[in-house]
Write a protein that binds this DNA or RNA. Structure first.
Lengths: 253, 253
DNA sequence: TAGTGGTCTAGACCACTTT
DNA sequence: AAGTGGTCTAGACCACTAT
């Protein structure tokens, strides 16, 4: 039994999850969680995970540590536990139509603080979303969302560089992008779901990791019907709720 | 030290939280959570909670048990922890406009299973929402939401009895209510947020308690602008995501 | 009845903030 | 330096499921 310290390092293969490795220190349960993701991928949907006691032996940790890793994966919907039976690998999320319309802007003195603006190649997943080759150039803009002084979310935007070649020059980090682009979205496809904050996201927003977040994921296209941006907006689920008025107003509120 | 069993009963004052007391057994951390809610209400927003070790002494439980109770309250946004500093009582949720439009109906063979249909008086909170006296009569309809065979949510609807006096006769539990009412909503106000499933909700939906859920809360009014229903829809956050198409279609997807 | 996850204890050291 | 929350251990018993 070597462990005088309860912390370790992940192998230096770079960030394994969208996680904490930049910090240097990784909690043991987080390393277990990463390893469990590999087990999950290997076994596939519907399969039974090894028992908690077996996982303790395999990863050489206590049961409480295994349970913390499993608990986060349960909160994320990757696993589900059945008392007396076992822990099972969950299927993909179901999809439910929602019908969101043009987003009006926040209520409480909204603001944004840009933390990343870079030009790079799209890669395969983003290229597919935007219907361009994987070596197409995009801008990646990452901004912290504010409500007054409080950090409440994190927004990551990918824009086709061909649509806005001079973005890096005339960039105003606090303004909506649409005004700076000359492209007005004519349509979009959007998804809303709950996720847990990764350690990195939690750090940037200034909240605790593994807190449930409200995630919206949007792909917008212009009047020509061709996609030009992908936006991923993450809001603190414990601090924000979204409201709408649909149709006609009420009588006397 | 009496405790040979790790479970106890809450005082028989009825359900304290929207919880498990019908079961008879309450986990110790859950009883602590209920007591913490009283502490939170007493101290008020921004105050520091007693330290975890103090709470251990006060409630005569171990630190792990206190931490489980606190962890759930953190996931619910009632508390926030700051390492090295303390645990603080959080303020109310912020509100953000969302703009949801007419909800299209689910994708995967949606269904409903009614589990409660009762006639009763509104009470003060519901009365205020529907703009009627607290002794006005309402129907309360509670239904499990299905996607195929899978339980994915729980919907609780309150309807002004004066608008649909014969609901109990001609009720078809699997159909949308609007068709059975003769009232078509002309407008609504809706809120979307993330919450954790209570033990009762988790039991009815067949999921684990304290799982993040997507909650929509809607008040609808008729052509006359007078509210007639309040609907609270709770969806499994780990199993569902909501999607929309806004505006014009894309070019070639 | 055996095995699983669910809850709980008592104690330890670490990282961080405050004084 | 002292005190807080964060992580971890080793072990125990309970509730539930499967056999």
């Amino acid at each position: 039994m070597p462990a005088p310290s309860h912390h370790s390092r992940l192998s230096a293969d770079g960030p394994v999850l969208d996680g904490i490795p930049e910090h240097g220190r990784v909690p043991r349960y987080y390393a277990v969680k990463v390893e469990l993701l590999a087990v999950i991928a290997e076994l596939g949907e519907g399969a039974v995970l090894p028992t908690e006691r077996e996982l303790c032996e395999r990863f050489e940790v206590s049961r409480a540590t295994v349970r913390q890793a499993v608990a986060e994966l349960v909160l994320e919907g990757r696993l589900s536990r059945r008392q007396g039976s076992g822990t099972y690998i969950a299927g993909p999320k179901l999809v439910q139509p929602l019908a969101t319309e043009s987003r009006r802007r926040p209520g409480i003195r909204p603001g944004r603080r840009a933390i990343t603006l870079e030009r790079r190649v799209a890669g395969s997943a983003l290229g597919a979303d935007l219907q361009v080759p994987s070596d197409a150039e995009v801008f990646h803009l990452e901004r912290v969302l504010l409500a007054g002084e409080e950090r409440v979310g994190l927004e990551s935007t990918y824009l086709l560089a061909s649509r806005c070649p001079d973005l890096l020059d005339a960039f105003a980090p606090d303004q909506p992008l649409s005004e700076q682009l000359g492209v007005e979205p004519a349509g979009a496809e959007e998804r809303v779901e709950t996720v847990l904050a990764t350690p990195r996201e939690a750090m940037l927003i200034g909240t605790n990791p593994a807190l449930p977040m409200l995630l919206t994921h949007r792909i917008s296209w212009g009047p020509d019907g061709v996609p030009f941006e992908r936006v991923r907006s993450l809001y603190r689920g414990d601090r924000l709720s979204f409201t709408t008025r649909l149709g006609r107003a009420a009588a006397h509120r």
